[in-house]
């Protein structure tokens, strides 16, 4: 129980937010942050723990979002059922991409760029295929009932997003403490050595990308229900791939709370710079970029790494000696 205590505390604290404030601005802010945290948690499993940096998590996010939307709009399926199928579809895409790329032994930047290419291929297909509504996109009709996974108020959405994040935190913590988790980290640190010790690196990575995809896919389903409209650029665009990797890296890649911390940090950063810059177009994002560079300079191991460094100063931190991932 002790290993999960921190998760329980964090989730309980977040769950108390609606009791403190009824402001929908705050709730909406937190919902979008949780959405990014969820997508980022998926990336974190594969990238943070497994060392496989994907630039194409949009492939999983988008597939799930489209599956959820299309099943409802075209086949009249219930939104909740559709969301589960959407998650499964995202996981399947993850498994297929993983099987293809890991089988060919793609690593490092090559893996990163090939995932990006997969996401782009899906984006292009979605922008021309009739089933996705092609360029017009897919609009889920308004039906503000719980059974349709739509709510008049922001609060239920908030709790659903929080529940999803809670589940993802638990899953990642469980993996961290499992044999599979240990294998995954071993593969990250030195794949050849891990293989020599009898770890089936291919299966470990394949399993990781599938679970990773499923988690990010959950964020896709949630997005579809929250905004009710998707098109190819939203579903498969680079924005989500970038947010999904930005959050965990800023927060601390390979740590359970990294994605959540990072998502809250970058969203807060975005809002703060907006306040500072007032109404001048571009100025807020200019500060945002500047601060991002500054934060990396000050906290090279992410926010989680920073807090650890403060509590346990000068713990010898040997990074991967092999700077090249080529």
């Amino acid at each position: 129980m002790k290993t999960y205590l921190s998760i329980i505390v964090v989730v309980a604290l977040l769950a108390a937010v609606p009791m403190v404030t009824t402001s929908n601005v705050v709730l909406n802010f937190l919902v979008t942050a949780l959405l990014i945290a969820l997508a980022g948690q998926g990336w974190n499993l594969l990238g943070g723990y497994g060392g496989q940096y994907s630039f194409g998590h949009a492939a999983f996010f988008g597939t799930a979002a489209y599956a959820t939307a299309i099943l409802q709009v075209r086949y009249g399926l219930n939104a909740w059922v559709g969301s589960f199928i959407g998650m499964a579809a995202g996981a399947l895409v993850g498994a297929v991409i993983g099987a293809l790329t890991f089988r060919s032994g793609l690593r490092g930047s090559y893996f990163s760029l090939v995932t990006l290419a997969f996401a782009e291929v899906l984006r292009i297909i979605a922008s021309v295929a009739p089933i996705t509504g092609a360029g017009v996109g897919t609009l889920i009709p308004l039906d503000l009932h719980a059974r349709a996974f739509q709510f008049q108020s922001r609060t239920p959405f908030y709790f659903i997003a929080l529940a999803l994040v809670a589940v993802s935190l638990t899953v990642i913590r469980a993996i961290e403490n499992s044999r599979f988790g240990a294998y995954l980290v071993a593969v990250r640190e030195n794949e050849d050595a891990a293989s020599a010790l009898g770890v089936d690196a291919f299966s470990v990575k394949l399993c990781a990308i599938t679970i990773s995809a499923a988690i990010t896919a959950a964020a896709g389903c949630f997005y579809a229900q929250y905004f009710l409209f998707i098109d190819a650029g939203i579903a498969y665009g680079p924005w989500i791939s970038i947010d999904a990797l930005l959050a965990p890296i800023v927060g601390g890649a390979g740590t359970v709370f990294g994605p959540l911390l990072g998502a809250l940090a970058i969203k807060t950063l975005g809002e703060t710079t907006k306040l500072i810059a007032a109404d001048a177009p571009g100025l807020d994002l200019m500060f945002y970029g500047l601060l991002l560079v500054g934060i990396v300079g000050l906290a090279p191991r992410g926010i989680a790494g920073l807090s650890r460094a403060i509590s346990r100063p000068r713990r010898s931190s040997i990074s991967t000696p092999d700077g090249s991932r080529g």
Partner: peptide
């Protein structure tokens, strides 16, 4: 590596929006 990624991403956002501004 991951910091190069973030720094160059941050620079991209910075340069683009400075031009916009």
């Amino acid at each position: 590596d991951r910091n190069f990624l973030l720094v160059t991403l941050g620079l991209a956002v910075l340069i683009e929006n400075a031009l916009l501004y």
